[in-house]
Design a protein around this nucleic acid. Structure first.
Length: 346
DNA sequence: GTTTATGATTACAA
DNA sequence: TTGTAATCATAAAC
């Protein structure tokens, strides 16, 4: 801070030399007692300008007013204009065009896809929709998980919008404040409209970087929510007893060829309130486990065989169709547990 | 706490 | 694409 008055003296000296806009008494003031007095005068004024920020607001206002009314103000203003001109010229070259922010675009796209930004999608989301489609919309637990997911996503959405609004409001307020300040200052120092524009652009850049942090945090929150949601789906849950019975019934009644067709799988899935892929998984697991330890499944096989026989008797006496889904692969009857498949199980 | 049962996932083959 | 085999992760039984 001690250095500044000296620097200002030096600048003023450079700026004033031969300046056409300066009053005569300033241009010739390079020597003699009178010149020294004027230098002292200018020095004092500049000193006052430099110390203005250290003073209280009322005092500063009073001083500002005094400086505005000072007889040398127009001359000093011109000097400052010249310094400014030179400074701006040197800055101008350093400015560069901003590249389009790819990161910001990615964040925006993701927030839009997840339903956080953009129009309300009735609480839905890409993840929930995809998950719902994948699961075939089966099971009450699934819909409970979905609504929980949607509720949490809506919470994130609300926080995001509230924060965004706050940031925008703060940005506008701050910009207005700075613009007013600069306009006020333009009475004592040269400030072009372009400079104000530049300052506004700087403020907006700063605020958009804050906004980007908000967007980043929101994206992270959505990702965490999403992974938790998917983890919950991944969590194993045993099928209910009825579903297992239906699947076992089909398996043992088609033991010679336990490969349900696509239609049969769909029918089983519907009956058991599970997905077709769960039916496929179940049959895959069952086949391999049965094959690995036929002895262990003997009792189970006999039990279901007996049940199937009873069903068949009922069917023949009532003339209605069998309970289990039909399949072109079905061999019917009750084969030996050590079945010989025409497929891969041997 | 350990073991068993079972649904899901993965790599691979046909 | 579908099925097999191995494996993982977890619920359920002990």
């Amino acid at each position: 801070m001690d250095e500044q008055p000296r620097l200002m003296h030096s600048h003023a000296g450079v700026g004033m030399a031969g300046h056409p806009g300066l009053p005569q008494h300033m241009q010739e003031g390079t020597g003699g007692a009178d010149g020294d007095g004027r230098k002292q005068d200018i020095g004092d004024i500049l000193q006052q300008i430099m110390t203005i920020t250290d003073q209280s607001l009322d005092e500063a206002q009073a001083r500002k007013h005094a400086l505005n009314c000072h007889r040398m103000k127009p001359a000093l203003f011109n000097v400052l204009c010249e310094i400014k001109e030179k400074t701006v010229l040197s800055i101008r070259g350093a400015q560069e065009e901003e590249p389009p922010d790819a990161q910001l675009m990615r964040l925006d796209n993701m927030l839009l896809a997840e339903g956080v930004s953009g129009p309300e999608k009735g609480g839905g989301s890409a993840a929930a929709a995809a998950a719902a489609a994948a699961s075939g919309g089966a099971g009450a637990d699934n819909s409970a998980e979905h609504s929980d997911y949607r509720a949490k996503l809506a919470q994130i959405r609300q926080i995001y919008h509230t924060e965004l609004e706050k940031y925008e409001q703060a940005c506008n307020e701050f910009t207005t404040h700075v613009m007013n300040l600069l306009r006020e200052q333009s009475r004592t120092r040269p400030i072009s409209p372009k400079e104000i524009e530049r300052m506004v652009a700087i403020i907006h850049r700063k605020f958009s970087s804050i906004q980007m942090q908000l967007k980043q945090s929101t994206c992270e929150a959505v990702m965490i929510l999403r992974s938790r949601f998917l983890d919950a789906r991944r969590k194993r849950r045993n099928f209910n007893k009825q579903a297992t019975e239906i699947l076992n019934e089909y398996f043992y009644s088609h033991l010679s060829n336990p490969y349900p067709s696509e239609e049969a799988k769909e029918e089983l899935a519907k009956k058991c309130s599970i997905t077709v892929s769960q039916v496929s998984n179940w049959f895959g697991n069952k086949r391999i486990r049965y094959k690995k330890n036929i002895g262990k499944f003997q009792e189970e096989a006999n039990m279901y065989a007996a049940r199937t026989a009873v069903n068949a008797t009922n069917v023949s006496s009532h003339g209605s169709q069998a309970n289990s889904p039909s399949t072109p692969n079905s061999a019917g009857g009750y084969p030996s547990p050590c079945y010989q498949s025409d497929r891969r199980i041997q």
